[in-house]
Structures are given as structure tokens and as C-alpha cells.
Design a binder for these strands. Structure first.
Lengths: 205, 205, 205, 205
DNA sequence: AATGAATGAGCATTCATTCAT
DNA sequence: CATGAATGAATGCTCATTCAT
């Protein structure tokens, strides 16, 4: 807010670097995931980060900004992971669908905490943040949809209702953080294989 | 926020004496669905019901009880709908899977508001309520799982990971209230047909 | 409040006769004694009496009236008991002091519950009630003081500070309900003997 | 209500930053003494301290803790005053009884406000606090009882019921804050003399 | 003689946030 | 970078009381 805010802290990426900032981001992620946006109190977040309430306000200008920063980073990372996966493969629809499902499952497993928030708490974003995140999310949706539509057009997928197919596949992947336990369940790679198989069946590959 | 708030009880004419309980349940359903458990304030619920805060406490002993009652009713109804659907069909796994998917989609469409709560807000139940609802939910899960396992055993379903198949199918159905808009999207029956088709593909029928 | 209030219910004695009224008075006595005026809720009083809240309002026009009625009856009874005790004895100061102490101890033991209230909760009376009860209490105080002053004047009591003596004796008697347990401690008669002995020592009889 | 409310902290000049805790304790003492635990609202306490409701919660975690802290401090001080008084005198029972009565009267007069609370409001303590304070109180009681029992054993006191004697003496001292008015009544030293004389008579010294 | 339904004011407490240092 | 102290608005809930029957 003062001179300090000209430093690297508040410069676009809403999650700042530095010890205090990192601890806060981690704590916020956990607590938002555990209790949801309204159930989480910034007091508890600061306490878990081992910092004072005022320190939190040094790094983030409000609860909403802290929350939005988390979500934005997470969804950005996810979209980038999808882009990267698609960049590394040809233009065969089945191959591309496999790649994006694999990227999605992988992300939901490896970053379970953020995913919990991203999947369930988006409605708590306000105004500007909501618009920006909504657009990002839609871009991910379009990645899926384009692949499926392309497969149908080429005759490689037999699928009468491509929009439903896409929703079903995304819903299945997005539900993973609700039940997945890394200590009890299969690893990310194996799980991805299984969801790829399911997705291919859903589109009638 | 959209259709829901127009169907609210607070529409000019006052609530007839003695019918406050119903108005409160309806208002609570809407507001919990819109804002989640922690985001909903009992003051707002009472206001939408057209009653005073104290009247809410005359009918329900706490916010948690009001919330739990809603969830319990909803999940009970859903399980009964599944049971009824399965009672009316033979023992062919494909037929049974179709029936339960159809019942699920139908419930999620017709009772979108409760479904939103039941699907997303269960974690906010405390103690006793959580235990009871957890058991009920698990019984619904078992209905799905038993059908799929049976189909695999009989060789009618080709499906290497039946637990994953079940999760995918349930996740897809449970996501419906998040996007479905009765004014824009297809009717319940048609939607059920589409999800039955998807489910049968997922299990490899 | 309506025609019913012309009956025997609200006619001076604030504690009405009749089943409901009695049950309420007993319950009120207990709960006011247990939790004090502000700690007691009329809901709990009605519940312990086995009646509805509205029934309480049939018999008593407010919490304050119910409370004041209890106190008034109790203090009236006490003053009458003192008067009666003094009427039955001669004019010897020691005899009279013994009589009034005996009457006081007896009342505090036999009507422990009311005494608890009368001793500790008088300050919660409002306006009119406070004035009336204050006067009554003072009349009891004067009974004590007159006896002691008389004894001093006659040379039967050797006592330099009669007001202090009176306060000490009353305080000792009034503290009885705070510790007395009828199942563990000596009976009322024996206890009265002991306090009479103490009182006579205090005034230097 | 009378002298107390004039000594309140809320007298025009605002509370200096960082000294809110003291102002709150003083205000709480006064208001708890005036209205009792349940009759006192923390809003009123904060208001009299010249602070906001939230500031009260910055310093004290709950109404109960605030209340218990006051009581504990007061009873601790009293027990220490008794200990100190007894440390400075020989082992003659009459001398010791005089010392402890003098300390008690002195405390009840000098710290009338806390004494009012400590004497009348202990029953409103919960759990842990109640246990701790109960033990402290009992230790004070034992100080009295041991002195009296010792006097009886040595033949210096003639007293058939030492427990009753102790109760009477304590009750008389504890009642002082209920009637004592520093502007109208004799000073602490003179009052202590009078109560010492009464106590010595009660035990038959 | 009593009830079920409702109310407005008040309760203790927690919230996100700000200020001064 | 970070803190301790403070705030106003809101929270879930209970209170004494009243209304209509």
C-alpha cells in the first residue's frame, strides 16, 4: 500500500514471492479447500501461516484478492498444462483427447488442494475476478469441445451429443479431488490411463 | 439468483398464519443453494420467507438443523426414487443401469435446487447428521456399484475398472444442476436418454 | 387480562391458586433460586411447570410481576413469622432476641429456596415493587434493632455498637441457605439453638 | 449506581491507545458488581470503558473469562492479604483471629466493588474456573476454621460449635459491601475493631 | 384456562478491515 | 516487513412479550 507495494509483491501474479507470502498462499490454499470461501476466516489463514493478521494485509489487499489470486494462478497453470500437452501431439482427435484428459487428471491429482477450490468455489468470485476466471474456464472448456467436435466431424468419434459427452468427461475428471487419496488409490499415471479409456468410450472412439 | 429468486415466497402477500414452516423451508432451500451453507445467513432466509428471524427459530432449532433437515429430505427422496425405479425393472444389468441413471438425471433436473445443495454442501454437516447422511449416500453409491459389478460378472459389461466407471457416471449426473437451465436446455426425459447412452458406453455394455 | 382476571387469580396475593398457578410458582421459585433473576428464563420456568409460555402469561402479567410476587409473599411470610414469634413472648430482651432469631433461622431452613431469592435477588426489583419490599425488609430490620436497643438501654445487653451487632446477627442467619443441606446438617431446631447462642453472645447478653 | 458510576473510565477524554485492557477491567468490575453476571451486558461494559465491543474481545476471549479473571484476581488478593496478616503475628488464637478478621474487613471495605462480585456471583463461574476458585475460597475458610479450632483446643475459646461460629463471623464480614457507604459510615480501621470484638465474642474468647 | 405462532430487541461472539508505529 | 490495538457491521441465537384462536 505504501512504498513497499512498488516492489515485486503486487505486480500481476497475485501470489507474491518471499517467505511470508509463500506461507500465506499455502495456508490460504489449505483453509479455503477445507472450509470453502465463506467458511474460511483470514484470521485462521494468518495463524496457520504463522503470521499476524496485519502481515496478511501487507501481502494481499483483501480476502477476496487473496482468494482470487489463488484461483487465477491455479486455473492459469491448468490451462497452460493443457496447452502444453496439446502442443506436443499431432492432430489426431483421439490422441488429442487422450492428451487433454491425461493433463487434466494429472493436474487434479497433483494439485488436489487448488483443484478442490477451483472446482467448487468459483461462484464466490466477485465482479472483475469472476469475469476473468469465467473466460479462462471457458477457454479450457473450448479446448475439450473443439477436439470432440473435430473427432465427430472426421468420423473418428461416434457421438450424437458432443456437448453432453464433453460435460460428462469434464465432470468425471473434476470430481477426482473429492475422493482421491494418494495414499490409498492408484498413482496419477495409472489413473490418467483409466480416465482416458473412459473418455474415449464416451465419445465413441 | 435467476429463476429461483422469482419463485420465492416473499411476493407481496403475507404468509398465512400457521404456514410459516413451509415458507421457511422453501426460502432456505433457495438461499443455501445460491450461496452455500456458510454464505447463507439465517436473517436472509427469514427475510425471503417473509417472516421474522425469531419465527425461523420457532420452526427450526438451529441453522444446522434447518440445513440438515433439507439435505436429509432430499437425499431420502433421491434414494427412494432410485429404489422405486429399480423395483420396476427386471434383473438385466443394462436395464437396471438405465433405470438408475434415468432416475438420477430426472431427480437432478426436477429438483435442481436441492440437488445443488446435496451435491456440494454435504461437508458442512456436523456429527450425527454427517454420519446419517454419509450412510444414505453410500447406499446410493452401492446401488450403482452393484449393478455395474453384476454386469461385469455376467459378461454383459466390458469394463476393467468398475469403480472408476461408477464414479464417472455419478459425477456426470451430479454435475447436471451446475449447468442445466430448464428454459434453454432439453427436457428431463431427453437428457436422461443421453446420459443413459453415455453410462452404457462407460461400462462397455 | 380479560374477564378471567376478575376471578381469584390476580387479587393482591401475586401467587394465584389453582393447579397451573401453583405449578408455576413452584417452578419459578426453584429456577430463580438456581440461576438468579437475569439468569432465569420464563421459558424454562413454564417448561418446568409443565405448561406453555402463554399459560404463564395468563397467570402473571410479566416476568417482573411473577418475580416480585414470589419475593413479596416470601418476605410477608417471614415478617408474619417474626411478628407471631414476638407476640408469644414477654418483654425480656434476651427472650425476644431468642425468639426472633429462632423464627429467622427456622424460616431460612424451612423455606430455603425462597430465602435464597429473597436474600440475594432483591436488587432486581423495579420501582414500585422495590419500594414496597424495601419497606417490608426495613420493618424486619427494625424488629431486630428495637430489641437490641431495648436490651442495651435496660443494661441487659452489653454492646457498644448495636447496629453492627444487628447486622452481624442478620447476616449470619441470612447466609444459612447458602450452605445448609437438610440431608447432611442438623435440624432446624438445633440450628436455631446454636444461632440463638451466637446472637446472645454478639449482643453481650 | 451511585459512587461507582462516577469513577467510570468513560469521562470525556478518550482512552489512550494501548491502555484499553485496564479501562475494560475497571468497567467490568463496576458493571458486574452493579448488575450481576447475567444482568451485565458486555456492550455496556465496553461502552463504559469507552471502547468498542470488538476491543473487549481483543483483550478478553469471552465474557466468562473476563468475569473469571476479575474474580480470580480478587480472591487471590484477599487470600494473600490474609496470609500476610497471619504471618505478622504470633500463635495466640485470639491474636490470630483478630488479625484475619481485620484483614477481611479491611479488604471488604477497601475493595468493595470486587468484594460484591466475589461474595455474590461465584455461582456463575463455569467448570475449570469454578473448581479453581472453589479451592481458593475453601483455603480462606480453612484459615478461619484452623484458628478457631486451635483456640478451642487450647481452652482459650469457649465455643461449642466452632463451624457455626466460623460461618457467622465470615457471613458478617462478607455482608459489609452490601451496606457499607464510605461517605456515611465509619472508616475501615474502626469498623475492623468492631468486627474483631464481635468475632471474639462469637468464639467466646 | 390454555395454546401455537409470531415478533422486535437484545445477547455474546466473529468477521474483514484499518490505523499508528 | 511486520505488529498490536482498535473498529463497525454482521453472525447465530435467546429473550420477554403479544396475538389470534
Amino acid at each position: 500500500m505504501t512504498a513497499a507495494s512498488e516492489s515485486s509483491a503486487h505486480n500481476g501474479s497475485a501470489i507474491p514471492r518471499g517467505q511470508g507470502g509463500d506461507a500465506l498462499s499455502i495456508a490460504a490454499r489449505e483453509i479455503f479447500a477445507e472450509r470453502g470461501y465463506h467458511g474460511a476466516s483470514i484470521r485462521d489463514i494468518a495463524k496457520r501461516a504463522g503470521l499476524s493478521l496485519s502481515a496478511l494485509y501487507y501481502w494481499h489487499s483483501s480476502k477476496q484478492e487473496l482468494f482470487a489470486g489463488l484461483l487465477e494462478d491455479s486455473v492459469n497453470d491448468y490451462v497452460q498444462a493443457c496447452d502444453a500437452a496439446l502442443r506436443d501431439c499431432g492432430d489426431d482427435p483421439a490422441e488429442r483427447l487422450s492428451a487433454i484428459v491425461r493433463a487434466t487428471v494429472d493436474y487434479r491429482v497433483r494439485r488436489r488442494v487448488e483443484s478442490t477450490i477451483a472446482v467448487r468455489e468459483i461462484r464466490n468470485l466477485e465482479d472483475e475476478h469472476a469475469r476473468r476466471l469465467g473466460a479462462l474456464r471457458e477457454s479450457a472448456t473450448r479446448l475439450f469441445q473443439d477436439i470432440i467436435d473435430d473427432g465427430v466431424r472426421r468420423g473418428e468419434f461416434r457421438c450424437e451429443h458432443p456437448a453432453e459427452a464433453r460435460r460428462a468427461i469434464q465432470a468425471a475428471c473434476n470430481a477426482i479431488p473429492q475422493w482421491y487419496d494418494p495414499e490409498r488409490d492408484v498413482g496419477a499415471a495409472e489413473l490418467a490411463d483409466r480416465y482416458v479409456a473412459i473418455a474415449l468410450r464416451v465419445v465413441g472412439a
